[in-house]
């Protein structure tokens, strides 16, 4: 369970990133956050694992306050939260397997991980994670030899190897073509359903949001302006979130 309690973020220059957010996200939900660029989607998502600091309020994850956590406690909370990025954020020169194994570093001593001495179970776990996203045969390829969609699946495998209980995906399909987009979203959905991993995704394609989400949260100028099941997220609601009519480029189109 993720709880936002009166969370606000004001940037040093005075810009308000988040304005008094109160949310509770239950385990196993597939939440899609929608909103215009600059509405605070990314800030909201990144505040969950404290890649971004908030300036007011508190975020509680599985009854532990990440806002107040420090040192080892913070690392341990982060270990349970996988993250998928728009640009995949893999080490391009390393092998796919090493990238996936890097998700395991939180479970072992510094010395052991630095020497690359991961136990056999970790390697099995990583290979299984790769199999789950249908990319096992690439385990020993260099990450930069893979296509964008494949790289994104590697980063999903990294989150799986991490044995994350929550997956945060920040615009996971923004650099992918429509076909790969569907594959990656399908992977995220399958993992959410099969493993019950709470999944929170930032998206700007609204048809995609409707297709995959169990719950949609609309952000506008750092405030939650919509929060409800997909059935309630009508075109009118979206127009409200966006503050204008929905345009063509906010729809992915027919491939979905």
């Amino acid at each position: 369970m993720i709880e936002f309690k009166n969370v606000s973020k004001v940037y040093p220059n005075g810009t308000v990133g988040l304005n008094n957010i109160n949310l509770t996200i239950e385990p196993g939900e597939f939440v899609v956050i929608v909103g215009l660029s600059g509405a605070g989607k990314s800030t909201l998502l990144r505040s969950i694992n404290r890649l971004h600091e908030i300036t007011d309020g508190e975020i509680v994850i599985h009854d532990q306050s990440i806002t107040k956590a420090n040192g080892k406690q913070l690392l341990k909370i982060r270990r349970d939260i996988g993250m998928i990025f728009q640009n995949f954020n893999l080490v391009k020169r390393s092998s796919v397997l090493k990238n996936v194994l890097s998700g395991r570093v939180g479970y072992h001593s510094t010395l052991r991980t630095v020497l690359g001495m991961f136990p056999k179970e970790d390697i099995d776990l990583s290979l299984r994670a790769l199999e789950r996203v249908n990319i096992l045969e690439k385990a020993y390829s260099r990450a930069d030899e893979l296509s964008g969609g494949q790289q994104q699946r590697v980063s999903i495998a990294r989150a799986l190897a991490q044995e994350a209980k929550i997956i945060l995906a920040d615009e996971p399909v923004a650099s992918l073509d429509p076909l790969t987009t569907v594959q990656v979203m399908d992977d995220l959905q399958r993992i959410n359903r099969e493993l019950g991993i709470t999944t929170i995704v930032n998206l700007h394609f609204i048809d995609l949001a409707r297709q995959y989400a169990t719950r949609i949260i609309g952000l506008r100028a750092g405030e939650v302006v919509f929060d409800g099941p997909v059935s309630e997220a009508t075109d009118d609601k979206f127009s409200e979130i966006y503050g204008r009519e929905i345009s063509e480029d906010e729809l992915l189109g027919e491939t979905v």
Partner: peptide
């Protein structure tokens, strides 16, 4: 990017 990813997995 990879640095951000390593922060996110809870690496020291």
């Amino acid at each position: 990017g990879p640095l951000e990813a390593m922060t996110a997995v809870g690496a020291n």
